[in-house]
Design a protein around this nucleic acid. Structure first.
Length: 571
RNA sequence: CGGGGCGUAGCGCAGCCCGGUUAGCGCACCUGCCUUGGGAGCAGGGGGUCGCCGGUUCAAAUCCGGCCGCCCCGACCA
């Protein structure tokens, strides 16, 4: 492409609504433009990257025997009522009515649609297993779209679904899929980890995320040298043994703590450590009140808590409701003497406590030396606090967890029979019995991968594309287009490189060199051929490697060979 | 959903508090000259329903009300 003919609008200034590097750079480098909140157009250069990623995804799906299909985006709402997800997805589902006032949804994912297809198409065990995939636009009405295409309301995703007669068959595809995901990310040049995760709205039990590591990624992952790795919604931990313990007293001692409400205030006032104090967080579900007990230095994982409670709609009590329940102001809630019908869930880490300091359910007072099981009895003990870096690993129980940030690009699930049972999707087994399909589903965020790649590969000057997904292989940059020799050499190289099968961008704009160099750094094409009068007179051509920030001079005749060598590993 | 902020040219912003010429600046864009190895210079030029609707006023970008859009923070507070 010639830059003068190509729609590649770059700009120097950072748009005020962009927050993270990938979003800023995608706008500045002319890859995307926003239409409305969470909805983006891919401009020509950005679309090229998207297509490269799609191609890699297709190749890896095809390689493991997954068959490409294309399902509708517009879904009749009845399907979601059958699966029960109309409620569960709730406000995140984009809904619309047709002219006869029938309710539809824009597909957030396709479990229902594919299960509907399977129940009418797949009748016999002889037809199984099957694995189908597609790449298409999905819609989710996110609470808060942000970070450009990273968390968009309309986005492109590859999703695959498999149908099996046995767990073993599901395991086999699941493993193949994990391998394919690893290869996709490796081929895209993205360093990544596979972690245990929460199944969220999809359902099922065993599931893994593929996270691309990036400084400003939105998810936290915990890992141990023993191989344990999980995201922040899932990661469990053991506490830190060295922490100061609160002694158990014969009977809880009430102490005045006037005006001391927060953990910081109470511990400072009493000269105690946060690890001696237990927080009582009060929540309501659709039909009951639940108290979550966690260490004073811990934070509650609403995801874990909600799962234990068995209700997705948990909500903290308001200040007024807390007063009504406990008879005390916010800041003095505790597990001792709560109404009988209040369910108490204690974090597993509390088992490492001896005594506890808790709120007294009386304004301006706390209790010391409280013992769990004697002074109050929790209805259940479960891990409901978030893991922290430095905690002991829950698997090997020796190592410590370290934390990294990243972007979730892939998520694979063993669904089991969740959808096939609720939607009556069955086949006939070899003994003539009707059985529900055992299913798996496998998502991969394609448009988000573009952003994740930039998040992992950029510097202060701009993007640095991994060679396998770069929108162009080579940028030919004639320093002075007015110089005849420069111009002619540029034209010649442009034609030769294209003839050799490379995607070439020729910066034929009549602009000052500085301007063109800045743009070149910004759009991040791995190789730049710089044509200047001085080098040309010596018969030499400069190749600049964007990632290494290094140039080398080669003879004109060696240019193509040099470039071929650079791209060989991706072929 | 709660809190905060913003909406003035393609982008980044000033002007608004304290109403009053023709609404301004930088970048980008167009024309010409000049310049050509890191976002030059000179001269000229185009581009605005000041988010929308209504109100107050002789007069509204500016004050008031409503609506819409966008962004940030929060939903981890006991």
């Amino acid at each position: 492409m010639r830059w003068t003919k190509y729609y590649l609008p770059t700009f120097k200034e950072t748009p005020s609504d962009a927050e993270i590097p990938s979003h800023k750079l995608m706008l500045r480098a002319g890859l995307i433009r926003k239409l409305t909140a969470g909805v983006y157009t891919f401009l020509p250069l950005g679309f090229r990257v998207l297509k490269k990623i799609e191609t890699i995804v297709r190749e890896e799906m095809d390689r493991i025997g997954c068959q490409e299909v294309l399902m509708p985006i517009l879904h009749p709402s009845e399907l979601y009522k059958e699966s029960g997800r109309f409620q569960h997805f709730g406000p995140e589902l984009f809904k619309l009515h047709d002219r006869r006032n029938r309710l539809f949804a824009l597909g957030p994912t396709h479990e229902e649609v594919i299960t509907d297809m399977a129940r009418s198409e797949l009748k016999s065990y002889r037809q199984l297993p099957q694995c189908h995939y597609q790449i298409l636009t999905k819609f989710r009405d996110e609470i808060r779209p942000r970070f450009g295409v990273m968390r968009a309301r309309e986005f492109i995703m590859k999703d695959a679904y498999s149908f099996h007669t046995s767990e073993e068959s599901l395991d086999e595809i699941y493993e193949k899929m994990a391998g394919a995901y690893r290869r996709i990310l490796d081929r895209c040049g993205l360093s990544n980890v596979m972690v245990e995760a929460d199944a969220g709205k999809i359902g099922g039990d065993i599931n893994h995320e593929f996270v691309v590591l990036a400084q400003e990624g939105e998810s936290e992952i915990f890992s141990c040298s023993c191989g344990y790795a999980a995201n922040d919604e899932r990661a469990e931990s053991l506490g830190r043994p060295a922490e100061v313990k609160e002694p158990v007293l014969d009977t809880p001692q009430k102490i005045k703590t006037p005006g001391q409400k927060t953990v910081e205030e109470v511990t400072a006032f009493l000269g105690a450590k946060p690890s001696q104090l237990v927080k009582t967080l009060l929540y309501k579900t659709s039909n009951k009140t639940v108290a979550a007990l966690i260490g004073g230095d811990r934070t509650l994982s609403e995801t874990k808590f909600s799962k234990i409670v068995g209700d997705p709609m948990i909500e903290p009590l308001s200040d007024e409701e807390i007063f009504e329940l406990t008879g005390a102001e916010v800041g003095y809630s505790g597990p001792v003497g709560l109404p009988k019908d209040t369910m108490i869930i204690a974090d597993t880490l509390l088992e490492e406590f001896q005594g506890m300091i808790v709120g007294a359910n009386e304004t301006d007072a706390h209790l010391r030396g409280v013992k769990m099981g004697r002074d109050f009895t929790p209805n259940a003990s479960a891990n409901i606090s978030r893991a922290r870096a430095g905690d002991r690993c829950p698997r090997c129980e020796k190592g410590t967890l370290s934390v990294q940030r990243g972007v979730e690009l892939g998520h694979i699930f063993k669904l089991g029979t969740k959808y096939s049972e609720s939607m009556g999707a069955t086949y006939l087994d070899d003994d003539g019995k009707e059985r529900p399909f055992i299913m798996g589903c496998y998502g991969f965020g394609v448009s988000r991968t573009v952003a994740a790649a930039i998040e992992q590969h950029h510097d202060e000057k701009g993007i640095i594309w991994p060679s396998s997904i770069t929108p162009m292989h080579v940028l030919v940059l004639p320093v002075n287009i007015a110089d005849a020799q420069t111009r002619n050499t540029a034209e010649m190289l442009y034609e030769d490189l294209r003839g050799a099968g490379f995607d070439v961008l020729l910066d034929d704009r009549d602009l000052r060199p500085g301007y063109k160099f800045k743009d070149a750094d910004l759009i991040g094409i791995p190789l730049r051929i710089t044509l200047g009068e001085r080098n040309l007179k010596k018969g030499m051509i400069e190749i600049y490697y964007r990632r290494e920030d290094r140039s080398e001079l080669v003879r004109k005749k060696d240019v193509i060979h040099t470039i071929q060598r650079f791209y060989e590993p991706d072929q």
